[in-house]
Design a binder for these strands. Sequence first.
DNA 1: CCGAATCCTTTAGGATACTG
DNA 2: CAGTATCCTAAAGGATTCGG
Lengths: 119, 119
Amino acid sequence: MQRNPVPCQFVAALDSIVGKWKPMILYHLLQGKPLRFNELRRLLPDITQRMLTLHLRELEEEELVKRVIYPQIPPKVEYSITEYGMSLSPILEVLHQWGASHVERKRLKEENNEQTETH
Amino acid sequence: MQRNPVPCQFVAALDSIVGKWKPMILYHLLQGKPLRFNELRRLLPDITQRMLTLHLRELEEEELVKRVIYPQIPPKVEYSITEYGMSLSPILEVLHQWGASHVERKRLKEENNEQTETH
DNA sequence: CCGAATCCTTTAGGATACTG
DNA sequence: CAGTATCCTAAAGGATTCGG
């Protein structure tokens, strides 16, 4: 996208993670236990079937997530993290850390604002 | 956004970084040298004035970037990374690393595909 | 149970022209 | 030089319905 050879790598990385639900899907799968479609739905209460399918397909496409179909009636499909997907673990870890402190920082700031406003 | 208390921190972090040009703006400012509006434009050849303004305002809003106006004619404005913005450095570092290897991985895969197809 | 298909809304981003 | 203001397009995401 960008001529500049260095920063464009950020974009490549972010493309794999960005998507409204992708970090959360990866987070849950990184716990190690394979999850079925409806298990993921329950873990992500607000996601629609369509978005879950779309995001899982994209993650599968990039080989971050593996899809295993058990030929049964009723059908059973399990999603799990791939070995390559595990390499995202440090990224999500550091994102999570920073995000938590960022949220806390914002919260503290709001508190201060309220106090100075009411006095 | 999400009830689940843990993964939503990712979103908070990503919101600060995501945006077509934000990682690159941050990357350039993290070099340490304050940059003027048009200097940033030159570093990001394809960005429009509008998008540069918008993204800078958002980064400023989150106190990741500092804006200093020198009251002169012609006007001079300098953008620099804040101390808080520097805390993003490890994140961008790890994203950059992973992104680079991800791109390389894809490239190798394409190469293999071409070879097996032509034979 | 695990989706695909269709249609619709919202948001991000871009093109262009103008200004103190 | 460093922006605003307007208008427009494309892409992401959501709602709903249908099917093996």
